[in-house]
Design a protein around this nucleic acid. Structure first.
Lengths: 367, 367
DNA sequence: TTGAAAGCGCTAACAG
DNA sequence: CTGTTAGCGCTTTCAA
């Protein structure tokens, strides 16, 4: 009886489409679950159960096998929109970054993407240019689309939006930077260790008078690197007056050049510069050559991040290398962990980094 | 009567949620269209009409205003998933690129994203690493998610998948590269003009013996630049034996170095090199310095693309600058045009480029 | 183990 | 101008 009904249904309601689909390749349109069910002579609910890993055990093994076979033949794959509407899930996450044209971020994106893809997830990417309104709009839009979590590369130390999301226990992971409030899981490089390595390297070359160009102090990277610099100065018993660290308003070549000029004009004596990132270090190059100083002959320079092409600039730049790809990949893994087990205690990861030694650092000049 | 019904409905079915929403800020969850309709005392269909630009004219002006006001108060915004399920649209497009870590692509992505955002659209980005299987899977996944069109930065001259999509008249635009088959709309830079500019520049410096490192010949960029080089040689009455253009298997520094070594070992005489892109040109730098040759003193070098930091390498590289951001932006505009009017005849755009003259090119050496 | 029924939130005929 | 009805394609109680 039910079989008869199915046949009737098939003939009258779905006949043409099903025939077309059966005539392999003529996929008029994507097959639906209902059509698979009709072909298999079962109710759509049964087909649904058979086709989902979680529920296939509820279905008679042979029936399930038959349904799967037919689904495969018909090239069926579930409509993620319909599924998402029903389940409020989406197998997607939101990835919020400041600016893709900053070479820091593409490797992170790749890391996130690759790990997510391996489990059938994907990421929505958005660039915010650090504009809170854009970020807010993007997050809203993502939530409407049922993203299951977020990866933020935009964290500021004070970051109301992140606090809000954390309060609502939205699954998320911060990359590259951390936020002061709430213990939001994060994946960052071990900046303090990186600074120590860089300074160790300079000290081994004989440098004792070192200065630091610090990045913006509303970002964890800016603060952490500066703090590490100051405490390493003391630990190494090097001169550590306050003026040895200059704060730059932004991570830009121009800001670096400006700070360097100020140091040359009225700062303490120094033979080496540790820059908060590579762009600042490039600014140092500019300021040095303006003043007729040579690197590393007169001043050694160390950058941070080891962006692409830092081995090609002149002189090739010694820089602290950050494992960008791994940061992205680990962030994705952490987020997936949280999604799989919402009660899991949030972990944060501190990834090791290495020093790329090149020729912008050399022995301390003889005075 | 209908009002009474609404009240009853409100009280018994949706009471708690609506009260919570009314108590400003306590947004338990996003308001739905149905809830807005109840609050406004209208049918959901009416609310839907009032809230959509296309259909608001079908609704009494005052009623529409009231509905809009209430919707705003409730913080209503339509659920894109539900809308997409119903309409098969999504206000999204798929953006398919080979690899985001290639500095060529981020500006293109930004251009696409910015234009789309201005009209409420957004882009799904995927990296394919030039793997056809990944590309196919990504396109499938995009289609299931009802993307309304595609931007491809992965086009090969022979590209079955693109042909297939074109045959199904899928809205799409190619960027940066073109495909041989079908007249798929594209936005590219005017490579021939760029080559001409570069060669003109070299000729003005006195160079007559020029060679070319061509990129892969399965890509339109590789072919077009090479063709332009050959025909410019003839137009300028310069030596144009076949060996003056060497084909590299890939756009990489190593491939460039290899080709350059071959030219130095057994190629024709030359005083200038036009590289198919900047990476190849960097390879030229490497090969030259291996042989103790100086640039531009012994050999002038011109790159293509003017990637970030090409002004920082040593020597700063003269390169043909491509308007990446604009390419992305124009591609998005073209795609939106097609989406708004599917019958529109597909246009292709050829964007002008400029030459960034730096110190890797200089006067021809005195022999 | 399977089917029936309901509904996620929205829009689009069709009536009235 | 507005309400009724139906359904996009799927999952998930509940009942049998």
């Amino acid at each position: 009886m039910t079989v008869l009904l199915h046949v009737i249904f098939e003939d009258f309601i779905m006949g043409r489409r099903l025939q077309a689909i059966a005539a392999e390749g003529v996929k008029v349109q994507r097959a639906t679950l209902r059509e698979v069910a009709v072909m298999a002579g079962v109710h759509p609910a049964t087909a649904s159960r058979a086709l989902n890993e979680q529920t296939v055990s509820l279905v008679n093994a042979e029936t399930a096998a038959r349904i799967k076979k037919i689904a495969a033949e018909m090239g069926y794959s579930p409509n993620p929109i319909a599924r998402s509407l029903k389940t409020s899930r989406s197998a997607t996450i939101g990835l919020v970054i400041p600016d893709l044209t900053n070479p820091l971020f593409p490797p992170i994106v790749r890391g996130v993407e690759d790990v997510l893809r391996s489990v059938g997830y994907s990421a929505w990417i958005v660039n915010t240019d650090n504009r809170p309104d854009v970020e807010k709009a993007a997050v809203d839009s993502f939530r409407q689309r049922n993203v299951e979590g977020f990866v933020f590369a935009t964290a500021h130390l004070k970051h109301p939006l992140l606090d809000e999301l954390a309060a609502a226990s939205t699954p998320m992971v911060l990359v590259n930077r951390r936020s002061a409030s709430a213990d939001i899981p994060s994946v960052t490089s071990d900046d303090a260790a990186g600074v120590a390595m860089a300074m160790q390297h300079l000290v081994e070359l004989g440098h004792t008078k070192i200065v630091h160009l610090a990045g913006p102090q509303d970002l964890s990277t800016g603060v952490n690197r500066r703090r590490a610099f100051m405490s390493n100065l003391e630990d190494l018993h090097l001169p550590s007056e306050k003026g040895r660290s200059v704060i730059c308003e932004e991570w830009s070549e121009e800001a670096g050049a400006k700070a360097m000029r100020a140091l040359l004009d009225s700062g303490p004596e120094f033979t080496a510069v540790l820059a908060g990132n590579d762009l600042l270090a490039l600014g140092v190059y500019d300021a040095l050559s303006e003043r007729g100083l040579r690197c590393p002959h007169d001043v050694s320079v160390v950058g941070f991040n080891d962006m692409p092409f830092m081995d090609k600039v002149s002189p090739p730049m010694t820089s602290v290398r950050i494992p960008q790809y791994d940061i992205g990949a680990e962030a994705a893994r952490l987020l997936l962990e949280v999604l799989n087990d919402p009660d899991r205690h949030p972990r944060s990861l501190l990834l090791p980094l290495t020093l790329s030694v090149r020729s912008s650092t050399g022995p301390v000049p003889e005075s």
